[in-house]
Each structure stands twice: as C-alpha cells, then as structure tokens.
Design a protein around this nucleic acid. Structure first.
Lengths: 300, 300
DNA sequence: GGCCATTGTTCGATTTTCCGATCACTGCGT
DNA sequence: ACGCAGTGATCGGAAAATCGAACAATGGCC
C-alpha cells in the first residue's frame, strides 16, 4: 500500500464519522492501536492536526472539520464502488447448486439450465435430481425446485416451468372389460397406476376440479413406479388407469394405444416452485438464475 | 495504513489513469515493483482481475473498467481535498528553523530568506548563524546550511548560494616590503590574515587549483577573525595576505586599496549545502523553502 | 533476424505498519 | 474522595509493504 496514501483518509474519515478511535477500529476491522497510529502518522506527514484528543474523547480541529467535509462524499462513493465490485464479482466463478424432481429436467429445466450456463460461462451448475423433501438451510443447495412452495427463514419462491396438464389414460381393452369411469369418484372402483416419489415416498395424489373447486383423491394403487414412462407401459398392458403428465401420454394416444378419460374433470397442477433463500449475502449467480427463471415463458 | 484498504483503489486508479505501472509509480512516488505488487494484492483480496497484463502493456478488464469509472471521480475529489488541505496548511503559522554560517547571510541567504518570508507570510523564520558542526537530529533545526554536505539518516542536501569566488589580497605597501607571491607555496613565507570559524574553531584553509587538481594549504596565521570585513581592514593596514570571498574584497580593490595576488591559482569553493531531513515529519514550509532554494539562480 | 529500449514481474532484504498488552488519563457514580 | 469503566497512546514483536536489482517478454528499428 502506498504509504500515507488514501487509505489514511479513509481511516481518518471513519474516526470522524464514528466519533472515536475504538468505534472506527471496530468498523474498519483494525485494532484501536492501529487506527490511533495510522491517524497520527497521517497527521505527521501532512504537518497538520486533524483531531483534538483527550484521554476520553476526540474532536475535529477546524481544519480537520473542513477536510472531513470534503472527503466524506468521496469516501462514500468509493464504498459504493467497492460494494458494486463485490456484487459483480460473484458472476466470475462459482458453482450454482440446484435440486429438482426428476420430472423437471425433460419438461423445462434442462433447457433453462443450458441457457443459463451459456449466458454465464463463469458459473458451473450442479443439478441433483431428487424427489425428496429438501431443507434449504441444511442441504447446501442454492435453490430447490419442487412442486410445492417451501417455507423457512428468508425463503422465497417463484413459479417456474410449464403449466402442467395432467391426464388419465387406459388401454381400450381395459376400458371394455372394466367400464369407463364417468365421474372422478369412479376411479375408486378401478385399478390405479400411480406415480411414487421414490422408494418409501408418497404416491402422487390425483387432482380434480369440481363445482366446489379443486380437490385431490388417492385411488387404490395397483401399480406404482417413479418413472412415468413405466406408467405408460403398464397402462398399455391394460393394468389400470394411469395418472400422469399429458405431455408424456400424448405420443401414445389413439388407435391401438391409450384412451384418455375424465378429461373435463382434471385439475392442472401448479407450476414448479423455485425455492431459494434471499439472505443478505445472496450471490450474484443465484440472483441471475432466479431472474432468468422468472423471465422464462410459462411453457418453458 | 489499513491493509488492502482504499489506498489500493488509488494505486489501481493511477495505473488505469496513466496506462501503465511505471508511469503510475512515478506519479505516486513509489517503485514500479511496489505498484505492481500492490495492485496484485488488491486483486487477490477482491478475487477479481481488474487489469489484463502483457509484458509491455496493460489494459482494463470489463469489470476493471466499470470499477475505474466509478472510483475515478471519488479519487479526484480526494485529491482535491488533499490539495485544499495542503493549501490551508501553508497558511497555518509555523516556524522554520535554519542554521547557517555567518558568511552565508550577506552573500545570498538574507535575500533568499526575505523572499521566502514575503511569499509565505504565515511562516516565521528563525535563523541561527553558527559555524559549528550541526547534528540535524539533535539540534532541533529544520535545515542546516553548511559548506559541506551532512550525512545522516534520511538526510538530503541541495546546493544553494553562489559559486564562491575567493581571492587573496594585500596592500601595495605590504607587497612592496615583502614581495609578491608568485606561487601558492609562497604564502608560507608570508603573514596570513585568516578567517576563523568562531572561537576555538578551525581556521578556513586556503583553496588552490594546481596541475594535479584542487588542494588546500594552511598558511601561518598572523591575524585571525571571524568577520571578513575585519580581514579587509587588516589587509589594508598592511598586515599580510588576506584570503576571503572576492565579493567582499571587490569594493576595496585598486588605487590606494588592495591588490589581488595569485588570482590564477585560486580554487572556487563549492556552493553551500542546504541539508535537511526528508523524513515523515517534513513540513510543507520546509518543502517550500527547499523548493525555493533549488529554484534560486546560482548567483543568489 | 538481431539488437535495444521499455515494460511488468519476481525475490530477498529492508522498512513500515499492525497488533496485543499495557499504561495514563478522564468522567461518572457512589 | 475514591473506584471503576472506557478512552487514546505507547512499545516491542510479528506481519505486511516497499524497494533495488535482476529477469523475461515485447515492440520498434536497422
């Protein structure tokens, strides 16, 4: 550091601003002795006394008052510039750690993450697919995409991904043999092919819209898997009614394939929720990702 | 100085402003190595590269460009505040303490000090004529003018005053009675009127230039005084050869006055040396005096 | 292509700054 | 008047910054 340079101005200004050496030292993260000595050396070099001292207090001299008044605005500007630098700095390198359900990738997340990685080449992305509940504080991830909004200190959520259209499908053969459900309550009399959230996880409830609003039902699960392509396969084999994302079912509809039922009764699922903690030291890379996710169209 | 503090901003800004480390170093009065290392440490602490370097040039990174743009106005403000402080400080009353040989006053120092006092009305000048050796550290003076350069920690010297032409004079009567010295060694056969450096001080040796270079001789002192006007008087009285500053002798030459001898053999004395310590307590008034002394023409 | 001047960098030595422990002083409460 | 808490200052040792000398790299000139 250039001896007796502008760093001394900062130290002096801090003493003046805080009304004492010890308070200034605390703010500057220096020892009180260091602040005392630094200001003394500064005054010696200048050949000017900026501060009047007694053993219990400190006051500005007239010339110190003037110098302080002139210097403070500039010091504040430099503090701002340093803060801006800190904020920008986060875009340079770092790893963004995400977790998301397996299902999110093909729907929208692969695309979103790829676009993010291209725009911010300095950021590495670590994406852990997991269907389990996640604790943002304990998990070490920057953000967790889940189907629901997470709660916690300083936790925020933004909707991401597409509006999720659901469907219930079955093979024509199954329907011939077991009848067509006419009302949502009819699924209780049918075999259900359900999606499970991993081993030991709950089965996804089936969501419906009725005259009284949205509600969910939990049918009797005949087949359970945590991969919707398997659900499609089981349905084709005539093993029951399968509840899954419509996008996955669409290629398998019609002719010898699957038939949709109860289409008018199905509720759309809410979009995924990007959950993150917006604490004071929220990194720029997380901020950038949240901003990009917000800006993405609902279909993506 | 608070390490890694705002002093580093100033150093970085200076490199950016001047387009290179060496130019910035010159302006900051630091070694190039110091500037290079200071900016490197700054970048390391920040975790950001502000400058792109090659072996012959330097350029700002994008983030460095932004930081420079934000910081420069504040640095300029602080420079202004420092300049204002310097200007104010010059107005603060203070005492410049000098010591000089008795001989310096009439030659140049009275004039120099008078011009200084007129230009800096807020400064008092205390001038102690003394021919003794002086210890800058112990003496309490700001600067010591002596005929030689002083040595010591942080001690600097600049030549001041006129080139000192010397002369040897005697009365025509004396020369008629005792013969005219033809060579410097002849003065050993004459009575000498010598200048003494105060009571108990040495006599000033007589300086000559010969084919083998400059040398000094110490003649047999018949008359001794520490005021050259007295030496002039003694010489007029025919008491011997007097060695003194030519400027003092000139009004007394010719007619019934004094005659110069050995003029071709005399060495000029080196200019006086203004010795001062440029340590951390170098005041602006001392700096101003040194600058004015440097700027004075050699005849003054 | 070779040489030279100029640049930024490196490194061990030196100088300066920072720090912890301690001290002197002061204002306040009793 | 005394004791205590809190302030700024001091000082020797540790840590950091600066420096001089030397080096590597580069661009311009011949």
């Amino acid at each position: 550091m250039a001896r007796g340079g502008f760093g001394d101005i900062r130290v002096f200004v801090e003493v003046a601003r805080r009304g004492g050496f010890r308070a200034a030292a605390e703010h500057l993260q220096l020892a009180p002795a260091s602040v005392s000595e630094a200001v003394q050396r500064f005054e010696d070099r200048l050949g000017v006394r900026l501060l009047e001292r007694s053993s219990r207090s400190v006051a500005l001299t007239p010339i110190g008052e003037q110098f302080y008044a002139k210097s403070l605005p500039a010091i504040i500007e430099l503090e701002g510039a340093m803060n801006d630098l800190d904020e920008q700095k986060d875009e340079v390198t770092g790893t963004l750690r995400l977790t998301a359900p397996y299902s999110a990738g093909p729907f929208f997340l692969d695309d979103l993450v790829a676009r993010f990685a291209l725009e911010y080449p300095g950021v590495n992305v670590e994406l852990i697919y997991d269907d389990k509940k996640v604790d943002l504080l304990a998990s070490g991830v920057d953000a967790a995409i889940r189907s629901n909004t997470l709660l916690g200190p300083d936790t925020h959520a933004v909707p991401v991904g597409p509006e999720l259209a659901m469907t219930i499908v079955a093979s024509p053969q199954y329907l011939d043999e077991n009848g067509r459900p006419e009302n949502p309550k009819d699924i209780l009399n049918h075999d259900a092919i359900c999606y499970a959230f991993g081993m030991g996880g709950q089965n996804a409830p089936w969501g419906f819209d009725g005259p009284d609003g949205a509600y969910k039902m939990q049918p009797k699960p005949r087949m359970v898997a945590n991969d919707m392509r398997s659900l499609v396969y089981y349905a084709k084999q005539g093993l029951g009614l399968a509840y899954l994302y419509r996008e996955i079912a669409v290629p398998h509809l019609g002719e010898d394939g699957l038939t949709e039922v109860l289409s008018d009764h199905l509720a759309q699922l809410p979009r995924y929720s990007l959950n993150y903690r917006s604490k004071r030291n929220m990194t720029r890379r997380l901020r950038a990702f949240v901003d990009m996710a917000k800006a993405s169209p609902a279909g993506k």
